[in-house]
């Protein structure tokens, strides 16, 4: 089923209409093969439009970061093409980068600089004048809830606050494309919410955003479309409802096994709520819940493995 789905997605999902310049990002047949023969990306096609946010999901090693690093021109593709607002990102990486705000994974910050210095300096590096850089720095600092920390040295901030700085740096200059590689990893729930707000505002203002994440909830709440990468291939890409609708059995029954001395947690899937209820009655379950399938279930069905390697018995 997974393979059939895969073929359907790759041939029909991506809209073919519109000129190259209409799309914020147009990726075709992207392949990355490393020297040791590992194929990290195996023919990825993707299109993203202004004012749209797409989340890229997938477990560690699936090829998400490799994909984003090629998109941000950090890594040279082995094959395929990448266009950013009509600019060939493979041939003209610097020109393409000028259109992007990027939050790379594992980026560091300058601990000796204050928060405002950090933002002002990197705003200048994005081509803003002194006054504009200062204004943008103030705006971004406020939007990320770092106003109280403006004059603090970055080395004195918490890990979450530093992560917010990295996200803020991507927003400087209001780039039309944001590429965020796991931007909220390690943030506490309140910080994450603040970051979500900032990202959604950027989308509302017309920015195209591509975001990789390990958090299903983040993808569900933020995305216009969700892409799932598994073993180097984009095995699904579409709006959340559409992806959920592709599940044949979209109701999940979770229950404690009444015959297991430790009350092992079990799950099984049904095509309808009524069917799930019948199963409950048949098995005379006392401790159970019936919920709609989630993005994780979609991932499981498509990729044949659980997201983030969770173990679930059935």
């Amino acid at each position: 089923m997974t393979e059939d789905f895969l073929l359907v997605r790759e041939t029909s999902e991506i809209p073919r209409s519109g000129s190259v310049a209409d799309a914020a990002v147009r990726v075709r047949g992207l392949v990355k093969r490393y020297k040791d023969g590992t194929e990290a990306n195996r023919g990825i096609d993707l299109e993203l439009h202004p004012g749209e946010l797409i989340s890229i999901l997938g477990p560690n090693g699936a090829g998400k970061t490799t994909f984003l690093r090629q998109l941000t021109t950090e890594l040279r593709p082995t094959g395929g093409s990448i266009q950013v607002f009509g600019v060939d990102a493979v041939a003209g990486p610097q020109q393409a980068r000028q259109l992007m705000g990027i939050t790379p994974q594992d980026a560091g910050v300058f601990g000796s600089l204050t928060v405002s210095e950090h933002f002002e300096m990197f705003a200048r590096l994005k081509g803003l004048g002194r006054i504009a850089a200062r204004q943008q720095a103030v705006e971004v600092i406020e939007s990320l809830g770092l106003a109280a920390e403006t004059q603090k040295r970055v080395s004195l901030l918490s890990g979450g606050q530093r992560s917010r700085i990295l996200i803020g740096l991507a927003l400087l200059g209001r780039p039309p494309l944001l590429v965020l590689d796991e931007p909220t990893t390690g943030l506490d729930p309140a910080s994450r919410m603040a970051v979500w707000g900032v990202i959604r505002r950027a989308v509302t203002d017309g920015a195209a955003v591509i975001l990789s994440t390990h958090y299903i909830e983040e993808a569900e709440r933020l995305s216009d479309r969700v892409g799932i990468i598994s073993r180097g291939r984009l095995i699904a890409c579409g709006p959340l409802d559409e992806l959920l609708g592709r599940l044949e059995r979209s109701y999940r029954l979770s229950y404690r096994d009444p015959f297991d001395p430790f009350g092992k947690l079990c799950e099984c899937y049904f095509a309808s709520f009524v069917e799930a209820q019948r199963a409950v009655a048949r098995a005379q379950l006392s401790e159970y819940s019936i919920t709609r399938a989630t993005l994780e279930d979609v991932y499981f069905k498509l990729a044949g493995e659980h997201f983030a390697g969770e173990q679930v018995t059935e």
């Binding site: 990027i102 594992d106 980026a107 590096l125 740096l169």
Partner: peptide, 12 residues
């Protein structure tokens, strides 16, 4: 320490 990424991603 990853600081180079800040420069590399800023069109510098």
């Amino acid at each position: 320490t990853g600081r180079l990424k800040l420069f590399a991603t800023s069109a510098l």
